[in-house]
Amino acid sequence: MAFSFVGILAVVLEFFRGWLWVLVPLVILDLVLLGLFFKRTVGRRRKFSLPFKSSLGFGVFTFVMALITLPGITRSSWEMLSGAVDYLALIGASVGFGVLFAILSFPVMLHLVGIGAKVKPEQQATRQTPPPAQKDSPTEPQGTAEPQQSQG
């Protein structure tokens, strides 16, 4: 029985239909957190490297936990696994969970470790200094919000 790509997507959609009550609020919460992050960081440094690494760590932790617990969660056990198919499926599913949780945790990590110190006005001015060829052209003084947003 062949399954088309659209058919597989339809099955996946049906599978998650029962989990939408959890997934939709989570995604909305993440989007709100993401929006809030950009709002909170107006006039501040935004750090992406540390939140990314933290989320990655969280994803790796989830991957390892999934690897250990998935057979039990599915009412099976490690002893029941046999052959490359089972192990590859387990690894694949665990990677999936790891990626999912890494993505979901990223906005939270942004808030926890992604907000830097306030940017001093002189630093902003230095950053906004036009290239030498245009140095003579008049530069209008800018507010703090504008340049920060352009860096986002």
């Binding site: 049906e14 696994l81 046999s82």
Partner: peptide, 21 residues
């Protein structure tokens, strides 16, 4: 021809979704 974990997961977790689709 062999017993596997994957078909068990399919039966337990995925086939109901396929049925509804």
């Amino acid at each position: 021809y062999e017993e596997h974990w994957v078909p068990w997961v399919m039966k337990d977790r995925l086939l109901l979704a396929a049925y509804r689709a």
